[in-house]
Amino acid sequence: MAIIPSPVDLAPLRRAPAWRTAEYICWLLPVAAYFLFPTSLSLLSQMAITGLFALSLDLILGYAGIVSLGHVAFFGVGAYAAGLLAKYGYGDPLLGLAIAGTVAAAVGYLSSFLVLRGSDLTRLMVTLGVAMMLFEAANKLTEFTGGVDGLQGVDMKPVLGLFRFDLYGKTAYWYSVAVLFVFFWLARRIVHSPFGLSLRGIKQNVIRMPAIGAPVHARLAAVYTLGAAYAGVAGALLTQTTQFVSLDVLSFPRSAAVMLMLVLGGTGSLYGALIGTLVFMTAHHFLSNLNPQYWQFWLGAVLVLVVLFARDGIMGIAQTVIKRVRGKA
């Protein structure tokens, strides 16, 4: 599509596709973490998986401005798709990811017709409704999903036929980080493409976009489907690395938590999703170990402070600081 004429300064966006030093360093962290925290690999892999999930929400919320409280629906669909595939003998992890992503994308595409009809409040309700329907369906189809007891017998084959999922979580860790990186790289290309720019345009001024020839509805449906596929892949990763699917993968608290992580990190910047996840899950981990009964109080306090003093999340603070430093220099 053609370049969108815009009064907004697009220079940073044009510059963005080249990887910056800070980004290289950022992606060296998972490698360092492997050697620094060899006994926490299962937590670290779940951070990577949740990071991918937050990234998927960032695509639709941060870039396209579609508010969703039911994003967990696609995570759950992916998780169950991967789980059922493995249970019935198709335990190859990469095949599972591909199919789970496709199935979640299909569900995302179909539900996009419902979701994109209304305004923000309607969207909140519809996304929540879709997730609740799927939750109840999974709850009801006990023979198929295991219901509240969870899906068992998820038997995964080694990754690429070489690396078995081990007790220490080494394979699970590298596998999750690799998948996260690939999908992050892809998301980075997408959001800086003309398609990504048109999404930002829609978010900024939805009435003006049709006037410059951007098909708003089709664009939103496309990104919603993409976000669903990403969430499905994240769900599949969780299933594959834990070899168990609980009904909880479709529950509202998981939707709410991922929203919190994204807001904490900062919406509309891919790294915000990852940083938010990292900070949220680290805080959760330490606080709940420190005090198994009342840790939620401290987590709540941290979140309130962030909303009060750092409206654009951690990325927002970081950008302000960088600007100030550069301004002085």
């Binding site: 299962s42 969870g150 220490y168 834990t242 609980s246 909880d248 993968v249 529950s251």
Partner: peptide, 13 residues
């Protein structure tokens, strides 16, 4: 208590 992934991770740790 209903999310198997959290229980499993706790057990691994």
């Amino acid at each position: 208590g209903t999310s198997g992934d959290v229980s499993k991770r706790n057990a691994q740790e």
